[in-house]
Amino acid sequence: MSSTTMAMPAATGMRRHASLRRDRRWALITSYVFLIIFAIFFLIPPYYMVVTALKSDAEVAHMATNPWIIANGITLDQFKILFTQTDFLIFFKNTAIVTTCVVVITMVVSVLAAFSLGRMRFWGSSILATGIFLTYLVPDTLLFLPLFQIVKAVGLLNSYWGMVLVYPTLTVPFCTWIMIGYFQSIPKELDEAALIDGAGHMQMLLKIFIPVALPGIIAATIFAFTVSWAAFVYPMAFLYSADQQVLTVGTVTSLIRADVYKWGMLMAGALVAAAPPLVIYAFLMDYYIAGLTAGATKG
């Protein structure tokens, strides 16, 4: 009698276990199917870029060949010509200078702003914080009109230094907003402990808040980097000579002449241009995700 009663719950338990395993297997299969479809969908454009960039001009122009495969052998000619016979390297250098400056300016301004708005409660601080975020909602396609007047007035029209001035209008509000959230999620006892330990506000920021908020800071840095590296509207509107141009606009304008598209070089240029963000994302992805999801859960 007792053995029967003992065996019953065990059998039920095993059945439940088996059904849980089956459920889990189906969940995994479904997610893999969708992930594979997703991956194919998003990897087709980069694949097409790589294939085209490694073809010769003749093969690209030959309508009879299959665009998805390299039939006549791999060549690096597109890259060679791009680097030696176009202004691509100037665009790359300009973009690198602009992006580095913008990232530095953005981080200095937004970390300081977020620290004061998020931690040093003062009259109007929450309204100011909301206001900063609202400015992020104004699209650059609208902002470039008044900014044109400002950039012209300060004499930075057709100079990439003008981009160093205007890109932070896109990056600072969002980065400040991310950092405010991050700083606010740090318990207030931490700054009180630091105050008692003898730290001033600047020491508190440098020695406690920045190290603790590092994931948030890295997330904000990646955001500023991406926005600045990929900006299109402002350079399109404010830069017109090749020596001042940046990658996004420069590649397109110099490699498309009327209805002549230099597809091979366009793809090679796009690939090289996409490399730095890719490398940065690959190394800092974990921090980026941790930063963006901060505050989602307490503690």
């Binding site: 318990p187 006892e189 931490l190 009180e192 402990a193 008692i196 406690i208 603790v212 590092l214």
Partner: peptide, 13 residues
């Protein structure tokens, strides 16, 4: 003075 807090307030890094 030195203070000990309820949630310890240790610097996590």
């Amino acid at each position: 003075i030195a203070m000990v807090f309820q949630n310890y307030a240790l610097y996590p890094h």
